[in-house]
Amino acid sequence: MDANTFLIQVLNGIQYGLLLFLVASGLTLILGIMGIINLAHGSFYMVGAYLAFSLSQHFGSLWLAIAGGAVLAVAIGLLLEWLLISRLYHRDHLYQVLLTYGLILVFEELRSVVFGDDVHGVAVPALLQASIPLTDTLSYPVYRLWMSAVCVALAIGMYLLIQKTRLGMIIRAGSTNREMVQSLGINIDLLYRLVFALGVALAAFAGMIAAPVASVFPGMGNQVLIVCFVVVVIGGIGSVKGAMLAAILIGLVDTFCKVLTLEIGGVAVLPEISGMMIYVLMAVVLLARPEGLFGKRG
């Protein structure tokens, strides 16, 4: 592997990691603040991607699609929290798992009814279609750089939100203690609704900007969901910082395991079992720190 290929893989790994962060940060916040385990979180990623696909065809512009999609995603989040999720706060995790599992089936099948089961591509906007040449034969697409930049910008926005605002203060307290939060004069029902909608919007947004690179296909949400679980487990529940670190780590590990070749005793190991490597990583973290890198014990 020469220096340029290496650079490209590093960029790919980071870009994948940043995208994972967008989805995982919402997941970890919903877990940490609301105490809700949301299996349908990956479905929002898928919903975002399909919104980008259909709206960009409708509007003829990915930019308009993303703007419209973001609004829709927030609306979906608010509606779902109000209609279903809010009924789960005092229930066992088991029921949260089941209800959100049911939601996955609903979303996945609705997708099948509306869009069919084919893979669809989404065009990269004209503005970002260029590539930056690295050597005579290698180049890096501008769109991927833009994706990373947007993710970083959102991450900074979240950092400011968490460090500088009252909402952030509660998030930092990592509190699911209703009394404590209410004693601060905060409407907890509204807070939960907003956090959930924010999480949905982040996941959907990740799906929208990923659509031109990853295309849209059945099952894409679940694939992302499980990887995001790994991110949350490694990073520690409720820790946005941990999610960031773990997401980048997993992005790089996954990317490099797919391009490296490794043989042990004549048996091809990589990239054969590259799909398993992030789980191996998770196992190692569990052995060393069962509560995750930035998690609280308990």
């Binding site: 089941l98 049911g102 996945e108 099948e109 609705l110």
Partner: peptide
């Protein structure tokens, strides 16, 4: 779709 709705 129905199964999902049923579970919910």
């Amino acid at each position: 779709l129905l199964m999902g709705g049923f579970i919910v």
